[in-house]
C-alpha cells in the first residue's frame, strides 16, 4: 500500500462519519458560490485562464444537455408510422434500384404548380463584358478589335458548323466546351451524369443564351431518359431542366440541380 493512502484505508475499514454524505451534499450545493467568488476575485492572467476553463466546461455541458434532448425527441418519433410504404414484394428490394427511381409524387406535383419559377439559385452576380470575353486582335497589323473569345464554359450543339475563322466573331474554345453535367435530383439526393441537350436560359443576357454559355445560375436542359421518369399517362420523359449551381469555368465540371 502506498504510504499516503491511510485515509482511504481507514474509510474502507471503518466507514464514513455518520454525517459524511450530508456534508458532501451541502458542500456540493455551495460550489457555485465559491466559483462566483473566485471569478470576481481573480484578475489578470489567472482570470483569463479561469474564464477560459469555465467557458469550455459550459460548452461541454450544453452539448451533453442537447444530446439528451435529442434522444428524447427520437423516442417520441418511434410511435409514428414511417412514410414511404412499399408493398410486400418490394420490401426486400429496398435500395436496389430506389436510387434510380424518380416518380412524380403528389407533393412534387403541387410544388410544381405552386412555385414553378422557384429555382435553387435565385440570384446571380452580374458579369461584366471583360469578365466574359477576352478581346482578340486580328488583322495584319493587329488593329482590328472586333473578335471576342468567351472565357466561360459553353455548350455547342452536335450539328454546329464553324463560320470561316476569319469572320468568326465569338470564339468558343474547345477546352471549355462541355457535353455532360452532374445533375442532382433534390428529393432522391442522388446525382447522375447526364448529357446536356441545350441551354435554356442564361440569366446574364439573351446573347449568352444563344451562344450556349453556361455560368452559375444558367438553366440547362438535360437528357433524363436514363432515369426512367414517367408522366401520369405512362410516357417516358426525356428532357428536363436543371439549374447550374457552381462556377463551371473554375471547377472544370458542371454541377446542376434538377428542377422538379
Amino acid at each position: 500500500m502506498p504510504q499516503n493512502e491511510h485515509i482511504e484505508q481507514h474509510q474502507r475499514r471503518h466507514g464514513h462519519k455518520p454525517d459524511h454524505w450530508e456534508v458532501q451534499r451541502k458542500k456540493e450545493a455551495r460550489v457555485h458560490k465559491n466559483r462566483s467568488k473566485m471569478a470576481q476575485k481573480l484578475f489578470g492572467l489567472k482570470a483569463k485562464l479561469y474564464n477560459k476553463k469555465r467557458y469550455t466546461e459550459k460548452v461541454q455541458m450544453k452539448k451533453t444537455m442537447k444530446m439528451h434532448e435529442q434522444k428524447n425527441t427520437e423516442e417520441k418519433n418511434d410511435d409514428a408510422i414511417p412514410g414511404g410504404a412499399v408493398p410486400v414484394y418490394l420490401l426486400d428490394r429496398e435500395g436496389m434500384s430506389r436510387a434510380k427511381i424518380l416518380s412524380n409524387t403528389i407533393k412534387q406535383k403541387r410544388k410544381e404548380k405552386a412555385g414553378k419559377w422557384a429555382v435553387p439559385v435565385p440570384k446571380v452576380k452580374a458579369l461584366t463584358e471583360d469578365q466574359m470575353f477576352t478581346i482578340v486582335r486580328s488583322g495584319k497589323r493587329k488593329k482590328k478589335v472586333w473578335k471576342r473569345m468567351i472565357n466561360k464554359v459553353s455548350f455547342v450543339g452536335e450539328n454546329f458548323t464553324r463560320k470561316p475563322p476569319k469572320y468568326e466573331r465569338f470564339i468558343r474554345p474547345m477546352a471549355l466546351r462541355f457535353k455532360k453535367a452532374h445533375v442532382t435530383h433534390p428529393e432522391l439526393k442522388a446525382t447522375f451524369q447526364l448529357p446536356i441537350i441545350g441551354v435554356k436560359k442564361n440569366p446574364q443576357s439573351h446573347m449568352y443564351t444563344t451562344l450556349g454559355v453556361i455560368t452559375k445560375g444558367s438553366v440547362i436542359e438535360v437528357n433524363v431518359s436514363d432515369l426512367g421518369l414517367v408522366t401520369p399517362t405512362g410516357k417516358v420523359v426525356w428532357g428536363k431542366y436543371a439549374q447550374v449551381t457552381n462556377n463551371p469555368e473554375l471547377d472544370g465540371c458542371i454541377n446542376a440541380v434538377l428542377l422538379v
Binding site: 412524380n104 414517367v230 408522366t231 401520369p232 405512362g234
Partner: peptide, 23 residues
C-alpha cells in the same frame, strides 16, 4: 409506370389503357 392496362388474350393486344394514377 403509373398506368394499368387491359389486355385481350384472344389476340395478345392491348385492349385499353387505364391512365390516371399519379404514381
Amino acid at each position: 409506370d403509373s398506368t394499368a392496362k387491359v389486355w385481350d388474350l384472344s389476340n395478345g393486344r392491348l385492349m385499353c389503357d387505364l391512365p390516371g394514377h399519379y404514381d
